[in-house]
């Protein structure tokens, strides 16, 4: 009986902890919105963040997308070759990239690379009193640190997603046409028959939403850091884990929503 009670209490405590965390996160988002709406808008900080999140992620996004497109084309070809439909490899890969693979994979890359960096930078500033120094100067740390990162991630993610789509399709074309021997004219003909602008728009909108969530989660875990170096490590870890989980979970809900309006 005691065992059952302890077990139930444990579940209850976990649920309460999760709800409390969600409450704090909502409060944090409210604070970021509030300070984001107040001047000054620090354009240089925003540009710095877009450079870090966007430009500095280009290589890893490019590499990931090239091979994602290539392997997806290969698998698709192997699967449908038997029914003589290999000419639709192009549009299938392109639509998959546009609607799902590009925003999700780019989101996972940015969550791992930039979400962790956001949490680590802000967390280490917190434990070394740099956030207090901003406060004392009359600068709100949320406005100075979180707002440019969240906006930077929200704006950079669609750009990265667009690059992912382009390079991924290049990888698919390279493997499909030049390695597997699909007819190039048919490849592009089918691509133009099936591909719609709405597919690309869906991916870009999703990418923006993922960027917003990754920025919020990364900065939130930085501001939540407690203690010293160990706290910074824990915050960084949480930022990566929750960033990736949120990209995958929110993908379903955003896709369902966009399916109704696009």
């Amino acid at each position: 009986m005691t065992f059952v009670r302890t077990y139930v209490e444990g579940i209850g405590a976990s649920i309460l902890g999760l709800l409390a965390g969600l409450g704090r996160f909502s409060q944090f988002m409210g604070t970021v919105f509030f300070w984001g709406a107040h001047p000054p808008m620090r354009i240089k900080l925003l540009m710095d963040q877009m450079y870090f999140i966007g430009n500095k992620s280009l290589f890893i996004v490019g590499l990931t997308s090239l091979f994602s497109g290539a392997v997806f084309a290969l698998q698709m070809y192997l699967g449908i070759k038997a029914i003589n439909m290999d000419s639709i490899v192009g549009p299938v890969v392109a639509i998959s990239l546009a609607k799902e693979l590009a925003p999700v994979f780019a989101g996972l890359v940015v969550a791992g690379r930039c979400g962790s960096a956001m949490a680590a930078q802000i967390g280490s500033m917190k434990v070394t009193e740099q956030l207090d120094a901003l406060e004392v100067m009359g600068i709100n740390p949320h406005q100075y640190l979180a707002v440019p990162r969240v906006i930077g991630a929200t704006l950079s993610m669609p750009l990265l997603c667009g690059i992912f789509m382009l390079v991924g399709n290049f990888g698919s074309w390279l493997v499909g046409v030049h390695v597997l021997g699909i007819d190039e004219v048919m490849y592009f003909q089918k691509l133009s028959d099936f591909m719609r602008l709405g597919h690309v728009a869906e991916g870009l909108i999703k990418a923006g939403a993922f960027g917003f969530l990754i920025g919020m989660i990364g900065t939130y875990h930085g501001f939540e850091v407690r203690g010293g170096a160990e706290g910074v490590g824990k915050g960084t870890n949480l930022a990566v884990v929750w960033g990736m989980v949120t990209v995958l979970v929110s993908d379903y809900f955003i896709s369902s929503f966009l399916a109704k309006i696009l």
């Binding site: 280490s124 070394t128 009193e129 120094a133």
Partner: peptide, 8 residues
């Protein structure tokens, strides 16, 4: 500040 709190 105690440890200066310079922006690193």
């Amino acid at each position: 500040f105690q440890y200066a709190a310079l922006f690193d």
